[in-house]
Amino acid sequence: MPRIDIDRLQIDFPLYHGQSRSLKKHVGNTLSNLRPGSPAAHLMQDGRERTVVSVLREISFNLKSGERLGLIGRNGAGKTTLLRTMAGIYEPVGGRVRLEGSLGTLLDAGLGMNMELTGRENIRLYGLHGGLSKAQISQIDRDVQDFADLGSYVDMPLKTYSSGMTVRLAFGLATAMRPQILLMDEWFLAGDGAFMNKAQDRLEAMVQHADILVISTHQPDVMRKWCTRVIWLEDGRIRMDGTPDEVLDVYLTA
């Protein structure tokens, strides 16, 4: 059974580039004494005296099959970092992340696609990345072309695409495989009306199929519709964890 266990997760980002190390040390020391809650309070030093930005602290939760989690919080609260950590992109600095089940990610708007390459080449690379066979790739190729409606543009470089076409391609590609666990950042909700209707159907089919969904968004109505649970992140910690109605009522009045 697919499941996600996150235990006392901690993520710090090192600050290497920029000013001299001694200056950073100095600044970090001074700033971490400031009042908590200000962005500057995130600057601190780890055991080896490097200046780090603390992004996630003491995050613990479990998701079982059938749960659909929404992440909410202001910009910089750590939503994207949490999603990336769950995807295995950032490995934990402290604590543990354990995912059981096949994983699909819609995190980066470009999906790591190369703008110089044609649509077809990007589809093939994406398929190879998933370790698919030739037959499976050509099946995905057809499926994505159907959805994204690229026409003869499929053999043109991505840089000649309109932004709508790029989003359609990325979205079609990311939803072409059916993962058990689906991690989504909010970018995919930005599209024109016609696309959104089309995307909605496809996404809903995928969400229905996925056993676990984790989605980060600013749109409360999306959460109420799709999620069974909402976690409110603030300054890298869990501020509130509960049903969408419970959390959103407090979040929207806060």
């Binding site: 697919p2 295995g88 490995e91 934990p92 600095v93 402290g94 604590g95 543990r96 992340v97 354990r98 995912l99 059981e100 089940g101 096949s102 994983l103 370790g131 058990q180």
Partner: peptide, 16 residues
């Protein structure tokens, strides 16, 4: 770490 031979892939990450 990643074990894709088994039926369900497992991703288990912690500081090593």
């Amino acid at each position: 770490m990643e074990d894709s031979n088994s039926r369900t892939p497992i991703l288990d990450l912690a500081p090593q």
